[in-house]
Design a protein around this nucleic acid. Structure first.
Lengths: 163, 163
DNA sequence: TATTGTTATACTCTATAACTATA
DNA sequence: TATAGTTATAGAGTATAACAATA
């Protein structure tokens, strides 16, 4: 059996340079891991998201909550928590802030006296409509090196992991 | 122009159920975003990672540092920071802990008196060798619904975003 | 003057325990 | 007894400013 074809190694670049003194290291092991790559990609999209959503005063979690309420009027905190995988105590101040900004409204739940139905206000509706458009735009730019087909494939494969 | 074909909406499930009272909400807008999906997928892999690496006493960042040092002996803190996109102050206690555990060693840098070359100890070499195998295994399981080809495609597409 | 590594610190995110009011 | 929402709090993760030693 012939020796296996070696993948190019950083060490073989130059036999006389044990300390290449570059700023970047050989990260090929990490770059072969789904977890590492998913986090790095998310970090990039995240940064663009934060920049573009700053004018709307929305962080990622705020956007998620408003977008869910736009398409699920009357949803409860518990439903938001289950859908977004966040813990109830961490949603409280968030909902309170959105309420204080006049973007959402808390109404008594029709069938359950313990629960509170969350609804977008007209201001909230307007804001999330604009924000959703901005997010679609920002997502397209952040993944501009992917074709439409590739982007769809990427999302489909990611969902095979968590959905 | 005819009305556009409606995508199936949660609202059309039943005209008499304005509050479906389910635990899951319609999240199709979010599920169309790369950022959202990348984060959700990373969260899953992350959980599996934490469970399987607990016996080794390694968090993700510890694993990344040790793995980089295994393939880049003598790397400096600054190089680790640049490669992993973390800030220097946040690496200090981390390196100190790995040093305290006897997994890495700090040696004076040959060409730069300010810098410190980081090296794995024999114990560190052994640990990261086992840990890398465990991570490959855990990654395969966490992405078990993907074929080998799909997993490669996923990684390639993620790297198109951040690399 | 610029860079490496460091300290101190603050802010955000995430997690747990315990309470209340309703079911 | 169990669940929805809340409070308080603790722990991680991430960020900035400022300093000492060296280039």
């Amino acid at each position: 059996m012939p020796p296996p074809a070696k993948t190019p190694s950083a060490k073989t670049e130059s036999a006389a340079a044990p300390s290449p003194r570059t700023d970047r290291l050989d990260a090929r092991v990490l770059e072969g891991l789904v977890g590492y790559n998913a986090r790095r990609a998310w970090l990039i999209v995240s940064t663009v998201f934060a920049d573009r959503m700053a004018p709307y005063g929305l962080k990622q979690i705020d956007f998620s909550v408003l977008s869910l309420l736009a398409h699920n009027p009357g949803a409860t905190s518990r439903q938001l928590c289950n859908t977004l995988d966040i813990l109830p105590p961490n949603l409280v101040s968030l909902v309170a802030t959105l309420d204080g900004r006049g973007l959402i409204e808390r109404r008594p739940h029709p069938h359950d006296g313990r629960a509170v139905g969350l609804h977008l206000t007209p201001a909230g509706e307007t804001l999330i409509r604009e924000a959703e458009q901005a997010v679609v735009q920002l997502e397209t730019e952040a993944s501009s090196r992917l074709s439409t087909r590739e982007r769809e494939t990427l999302i489909k494969l990611l969902q095979k992991i968590y959905l």
